[in-house]
């Protein structure tokens, strides 16, 4: 009971803090939308990959922006781990009689719910580019968005926990989190890249997150649940999420220990 109560309280706190910082709301929603509009509009005229002639770049890029939105939301959420430590709040959480899993999950769930809310707002734009989801497809897409958001937030938490400053985290973000997105197939199709890069992209779990987020726009939910490619990608994403959460718990469990004297 204490676990559920504490997890919900920590997650709710994340959400409350988010809505009380308007610049954070504007930044995390505005940036992906601007990327989508500028890059999408700019590349639409020249984007003609073989086999995808019927898809405009703005449409191709849409699931990638959804993914980017989740990534940015998780980055902003993860930065609060460093802020919580600097501002002292983390101390009171660490001395509470709750397991470390609750702390990790409360924080991650809160961040993921923020990301999901932003993604839901962005989903409202989908019909304007001809991407329409059925009710079942919408439900599936939301579940997949939440799952991916959990993965990103857990990964961000893991990186942020060891960081001494937000500046240090920004550096990590640029060399770890952003490349994961860049090499996910969000910007360009995976089918037409050199073999070595393709191998890297296929081993990137975020590539599989993009696959499962893209497919519901083009296939019925029922059909996807028996689709081998979809299920393989889903399995990889689930493993990625669980591993990130597990590593985060291990990291937070580790306490500084004195050496023998």
């Amino acid at each position: 009971m204490i676990t559920v109560h504490a997890t919900a309280a920590l997650a709710q706190r994340e959400f409350t803090r988010f809505v009380r910082q308007p610049q954070r709301v504007i930044g995390s929603i505005g940036q992906p939308i601007l990327f989508w509009l500028f890059l999408g509009t700019g590349f639409t005229g020249s984007f003609r990959p073989p086999g995808m002639e019927g898809i405009s770049y703005i449409e191709f890029f849409y699931p990638g922006v959804l993914l980017m939105l989740l990534l940015f939301a998780s980055i902003f959420s993860s930065i609060t781990v460093i802020e919580d430590r600097d501002q002292g709040f983390l101390q009171s959480v660490l001395v509470a009689p709750i397991s470390r899993l609750v702390i990790v999950f409360g924080k991650i769930l809160g961040g993921a719910l923020i990301a999901l809310t932003q993604a839901m707002l962005f989903l409202l734009l989908a019909p304007f580019i001809g991407l329409v989801l059925s009710p079942a497809g919408t439900a599936l897409e939301l579940i997949l968005l939440l799952l991916t958001a959990l993965g990103f937030t857990a990964l961000g938490f893991l990186c942020a926990w060891s960081m001494k400053s937000t500046a240090g985290f920004h550096a990590i973000m640029m060399v770890i989190l952003m490349p994961l997105w860049l090499l996910s197939g969000a910007l360009f199709p995976i089918q037409h890249v050199p073999p070595l890069l393709r191998l890297v992209m296929e081993t990137n779990p975020v590539t599989h997150a993009l696959v499962i987020l893209r497919l519901p726009f083009y296939h019925a939910a029922e059909q996807l649940l028996s689709d081998k490619d979809f299920l393989v990608s889903l399995f990889i994403v689930v493993i990625w999420v669980m591993a990130s959460i597990w590593l985060s718990v291990l990291r937070i469990e580790k306490r500084e220990k004195g050496i023998s004297y």
């Binding site: 109560h5 504490a6 309280a9 920590l10 706190r13 910082q21 501002q87 009171s92 009689p97 709750i98």
Partner: peptide
């Protein structure tokens, strides 16, 4: 600091179940 007095108290109580 972004939460109110009451919200901080409620959060702390929740951490203790």
């Amino acid at each position: 600091k972004y939460l109110s007095v009451g919200e901080n108290m409620a959060l702390y109580a929740a951490l203790y179940g």
